[in-house]
């Protein structure tokens, strides 16, 4: 496990000390293999949830693909991006409402009104402090590109991440190694505004040509939510039959299923 691993939050189910990491020898071995091949280009990693995350330096992005191809990762799964800026949705108006509903005492709060439940939805958001919280294998910048490869022979996969510059996010293309990255990079480019150097035809894939903005960035407003406020947790209501035992309310079929 690399030292740069930053557990995203305290309650992370699979941090460095998680039980799942101990038993995952295959991914651990793969990580060691990758680290020897890529050297100091590996700046962060995470083993957990039955998977492996590796964060590489942006300049080693193509080299990672080449090494993986040599290692027998023949299957290109996907390539996409992520914007770690905390988002400002869904509905700023409800944020003021007080009250917190936690997982642990959700059963006790069963008689709480829907309004409070709504408020709980908001107050837990990390949007409050505005700080960037990155995920597995860490990250230093707002934008990350992520891609996944898989070996159909060894039946093991790895997710790569690389940090991109906040102002001009650009990185080398993978199309030379995995032609399937073509469309994925076009999609990522139009959705996040990333630039892929060396891509043969980096035009928009889904959006119309004259579209402005990058929809999957967190600061891109979702107009539907701006126009119509979020209705709240309307679907979480007590089942009429089980008022006495609210903890069982979510599992009314458990008895019938026996």
């Amino acid at each position: 496990m690399s030292s740069a691993d930053v557990p995203p939050a305290a309650q992370s189910p699979s941090g460095d000390t998680g039980a799942s990491t101990v038993t995952d020898d295959r991914h651990q071995a793969l990580l060691e293999d990758l680290t020897t091949r890529l050297g100091d280009a590996v700046v962060g990693s995470h083993v957990g949830n039955g998977d492996l995350w590796v964060r590489v330096r942006p300049d080693a992005w193509v080299r990672a693909a080449q090494e993986c191809k040599a290692m027998g990762f023949d299957y290109f799964c996907y390539l996409s991006g992520i914007d770690w800026m905390p988002h400002t949705w869904p509905n700023p108006k409800v944020i003021e409402a007080p009250g917190v509903v936690d997982n642990e005492n959700a059963g006790d709060d069963a008689d709480a009104s829907p309004q409070e439940a709504e408020a709980g939805f908001e107050s837990d958001e990390p949007a409050g402090d505005g700080a960037i919280v990155t995920g597995f294998a860490g990250g230093d910048t707002r934008f990350q590109v992520l891609a996944r490869l898989y070996s159909t022979i060894r039946h093991i996969g790895v997710t790569f991440k690389a940090d991109l510059d906040d102002e001009t996010p650009r990185i080398q293309t993978w199309t030379g190694e995995y032609p399937g990255a073509d469309w994925c990079e076009r999609e990522t480019s139009e959705m996040f505004g990333f630039d892929f150097d060396g891509h043969p035809n980096l035009i928009k894939l889904y959006l119309p040509g004259e579209f402005e903005g990058f929809p999957l960035r967190k600061d891109f407003p979702l107009l539907a939510r701006e126009v119509k406020p979020w209705p709240g947790l309307v679907d979480v209501e007590l089942f009429p039959a089980s008022y006495e035992d609210p903890a069982e309310a979510a599992t009314p079929a458990a008895e019938e299923g026996a």
């Binding site: 189910p13 997982n103 903890a247």
Partner: peptide, 8 residues
Amino acid sequence: RIIKVPAG
């Protein structure tokens, strides 16, 4: 009752 997914 209210599904909240831990970070990760």
